[in-house]
Amino acid sequence: MNLTLKVWRQKDASSQGYLETIEAKDINQYMSFLEMLDVVNEHLIVEGKEPISFESDCREGICGACSCAINGKPHGGHKGTTTCQLHMRYFKDGDTIVIEPWRSRAFPVIKDLIVDRSAFDRIIQAGGYISVNTGGAHDANSIPVSKEIAETAMDAAACIGCGACVASCKNGSAMLFVAAKVSHLNLLPQGKPEKDYRVKNMVTQMDEEGFGNCTNIGSCAEVCPKEVDLKFIAKMNRDYGLAILKGESRHKPDTISIQAELSELPID
C-alpha cells in the first residue's frame, strides 16, 4: 500500500516545527509502524535527505521508548498497544497518517518526534524507591504479602514510563504515571515506612516539572499501553490527603547527610 505521512519535523529544541508531507510507498500490512518508518528513513538517507528522528529500542512494548502520537492518539490508540507493536494492517492504501511527538509543556521536543522525558526520572528520584541499601535484607519470605496486594502492586508497577498518559491529557497531567509508582510502593509492606514522604515528595516534584492538574477525565488510562487503572489516582489522592493531614515535614531528612558527616571523620 502507499501512504501519505504528515510528520512533525523540528530541527532542535529552539527551532520552529512544521508538518512535512512524506510519501511512504510499497508498505505492506505485516510491517510494524516503526518498520514502516524505518523503510521511509532508508529511502530518505539514500536520497541524501534528513531521516525522521524517532525513539524506539526494545520494539516489543516494554522499554517505553517509543512515543509518537498517531492521528492524534498516543501510540495510535489501540488497546494495550505501544507504537512499536502497532502493525500496518490497521491502515489501508491511500491513508494519510499524521505523526507527531508527545505534546506537553513538561516534555519539550528535542528533535522531530523525540521529546525530553527526563522529568519522569526526576520524579522517581524524588521518592519513587524504597530506602534499602544493598546487603542486609532479611529473608525474602519473612514478611508475607497477600496475593491480592502483590497482584495490585504489580498492576501498578507494570507502567513503562512512556508518557502516553501525559500526552493524551488535555491538562498535560502526569498523575497516572506518578500514581502508578506511588501505589506500587505504598501498597507493599516494604514501602509503608516511607509512604507519606514518598507521595508528598513525588507530587511536589511533579508540580515543579510543569505537569498540569488532574480533572478526572480518564483519557490517560484509556491510552495507557499497559492499561494502568485510573483507581490508582484515587489511591494516590487518598495517600496524599492522609500525609498532609498528618502534617509531617514536606521533605524527608536526607539520610545521606548523616553518612556524609560520618565519613568526614578521619578514619584511615
Binding site: I130, V132, A137, P144, S146, K147, A150, H184
Partner: peptide, 20 residues
Amino acid sequence: NIIDQCVAQGVPFARDYGGL
C-alpha cells in the same frame, strides 16, 4: 541474597495465597 534484596526493594514477585 538477590531475592532477599529485590523483595526489600519492593519487587512485586508472584505470591501464593499464603502470601509467600
